[in-house]
């Protein structure tokens, strides 16, 4: 059971409300875990704890089997946990290379003394990571503004991968996309899995989950109510878990 990322008895309270109640999940390398639940089930809070936005009141997070302190988003990034939010956090006025290297720009010397941006090198590196993930973008010189929703998502993911993400958290990755683009993003998730990245997907789309996820975890009112291997379950059972109409199966 060598988990890439593991939470043990994570609990988070907001005032009188227990948003996440003793949740323990694990994620292996090259595996996609879907976290499902109705609105307010606590899945967003859980994700925010893992990505360092919230601090848990109780419980521990282990990375590569070692206990890890994740007190801020920067700690999470340093630990190789990248989160792709729905808004993607790209600077739309800059090109692909500039976005992938934002905050960590490649510089070169010009005329011997001046340090200048090495946009050429940044674009080449960007092209490499895009090729690795089998993503096609017509021209890397174009600004993000001119790209489609799916392409933007691909750029955001490429940025994480370039900077050595080991765990990728995707918040509703297909929510804002057309059908063709949804397919591309799901393909991208498969490619990422093949490269040994662990992926946590938050989604409402049952189709996505059954298409790419290996396992799924269902939350209800802050509690983890069930985990299933995707191949061994079906949408009806999962819906039942989400709304709570079925008796809870194996509680770990």
């Amino acid at each position: 059971m060598d988990y890439l990322l593991e939470t043990r008895n994570i609990t988070k309270r907001f005032g009188g409300l227990t948003a996440v109640d003793r949740v323990s999940i694990g994620l292996r390398a090259g595996e996609a875990l879907a976290v499902l639940g109705d609105n307010g089930a606590g899945k967003s809070t859980l994700i925010k704890i893992i990505s360092g936005v919230h601090k848990p009141d109780e419980g521990e997070i282990f990375i590569g089997g070692k206990p890890a302190r994740i007190d801020s988003p920067m700690d999470a990034l340093a630990a190789g946990i990248e989160t792709i939010y729905q808004d993607l956090a790209l600077a739309e006025n800059l090109d692909v290379g500039a976005n992938i290297f934002l905050g960590r720009e490649r510089m070169k010397r010009s005329l011997g003394i001046l340090k200048v941006l090495d946009d050429q090198a940044m674009r080449e590196e960007a092209q490499k990571v895009l090729d690795r993930l089998d993503i096609h973008i017509p021209s890397l010189k174009k600004t993000i503004r001119t790209l489609s929703g799916g392409q933007r998502q691909a750029v955001a993911i490429s940025r994480s991968i370039y900077w050595d993400a080991k765990v990728l958290i995707m918040d509703e990755p297909t929510a804002a996309l057309g059908v063709a683009e949804q397919k591309k993003v799901l393909n991208l998730v498969r490619t990422l899995k093949d490269q040994g990245i662990g992926i946590i997907i938050i989604s409402h789309q049952m189709y996505d989950v059954f298409e790419v996820a290996d396992r799924l975890a269902v939350m209800r009112r802050g509690v983890l109510v069930g985990e299933r291997i995707v191949k061994e379950t079906n949408p009806d059972e999962v819906v039942g878990l989400i709304v709570g109409s079925e008796t809870v199966g194996k509680e770990r």
């Binding site: 988003p73 920067m74 990034l77 808004d87 993607l88 956090a89 790209l90 600077a91 739309e92 006025n93 800059l94 500039a98 976005n99 934002l102 905050g103 960590r104 720009e105 510089m107 010009s110 001046l114 340090k115 200048v116 941006l117």
Partner: peptide, 27 residues
């Protein structure tokens, strides 16, 4: 030159493009 070719300029554009992206990029 600073604005087009320097890191200072790049970050200036980034801030105007997306404050959120800039923060999350560690600027």
């Amino acid at each position: 030159f600073t604005l087009r070719r320097g890191r200072f300029g790049r970050h200036t554009y980034a801030l105007g493009g997306s404050m959120d992206a800039s923060i999350r990029s560690g600027i």
